[in-house]
């Protein structure tokens, strides 16, 4: 079983390493946000503490990287399902839970790798976290990636084709980003949005990353929203519940069967004739049969 999980992880990482465009896009997006949004907002937002807006924004950008990368990896499952490789997993002697777990851990690892590549920004923006704080940041990224990855798997289990991806990005990923604490402390959002803010795993992921990065600074109006232990607790809960749900949904044969069914069921009584490789010349044997 460990071998199987390892096999899935190796496969996903190999694919990731070979799809350069995907990696480049995932770095370019947050850098653009940092330069454009960061610079603009820095002028607009009066800081009360010693934390600059860009320093505040940095965990939000890691959150963005992790969100896009985990969702992309999880949604690649839909592509797999359309084009085959997931069938290898489905006929292998593995419980669905293991399959879903292996996929989720792969997407979390890819998220972590992509975030690590952007680590130099920490020092470029003038932050000097201790080694312990860096380890804490890594742990936060891993846990957050895992929670978001399991969320992605739940979504993937319900999708029929990858074509819905644009819709997912516009109606799910961007709202998740804006409703999280990425661009502003989540507590600043109006009350009617708070239930959504609290239901968003990205809120806690970013908050948990912000703790080690801003530790020792006086944040003023650009601070964290929750305590570390609360963030961890919520993210663990999210992971467990979403992973269980994803295993359940992937295990639901009814749904998978519909997607995997290549032959569309033929309505009874239709008069479609069998398609046969004809030997020349064709004969209406069916009509001419001397029976009945």
């Amino acid at each position: 079983m460990i071998g199987a999980i390892e096999a899935v992880v190796v496969r996903e990482l190999t694919r990731f390493a070979r799809q350069r465009g995907r990696a480049v896009a995932s770095f370019a997006r947050p850098l653009l946000w940092l330069v454009v949004i960061g610079a603009g907002f820095e002028k607009l937002v009066p800081t009360e503490g010693t934390v600059s807006y860009k320093q505040f924004l940095l965990p939000g950008l890691y959150g963005m990287v992790v969100l896009f990368s985990t969702m992309l990896t999880a949604l690649a499952t839909v592509h797999d399902r359309e084009f085959g490789p997931i069938r290898m997993l489905l006929v292998a002697p593995l419980p669905r839970f293991v399959t879903v777990f292996a996929k989720t851990i792969s997407s979390a690892l890819i998220g972590v790798i992509q975030a690590i590549v952007l680590f130099p920004l920490i020092w470029i923006l003038g932050l000097h976290p201790s080694v312990g704080a860096l380890a804490e940041l890594l742990g936060a990224i891993l846990l957050g990636s895992f929670a978001l990855g399991s969320f992605g798997m739940v979504i993937a289990s319900r999708l029929r084709s990858i074509e819905n991806f644009a819709g997912i990005m516009n109606f799910l990923m961007f709202p998740m980003f804006f409703l999280s604490s990425a661009l502003y402390p989540a507590s600043l959002l109006p009350g009617f949005l708070q239930p959504l803010v609290r239901a968003d795993p990205l809120t806690y992921t970013i908050d948990l990353m912000r703790h080690p990065l801003l530790r020792g600074l006086y944040p003023g109006n650009l601070g964290t929203d929750y305590t570390v232990s609360f963030d961890v607790l919520v993210l663990v809960l999210f992971s467990v519940v979403l992973l269980a749900l994803a295993s359940l949904l992937f295990g639901e044969e009814e749904h998978l069967g519909r997607i995997l069914l290549v032959e569309p069921p033929r309505p009874r009584g239709s008069r479609r004739l069998p398609r046969l490789p004809r030997r020349a010349p064709a004969l209406p044997v069916g009509d001419a049969a001397p029976s009945d």
Binding site: L273, P274, L276, V285, G286, D287, A289, S291, D292
Partner: peptide, 10 residues
Amino acid sequence: FVDLTGREVS
């Protein structure tokens, strides 16, 4: 095949 399934169809 055609004999069997064809009859079914008709």
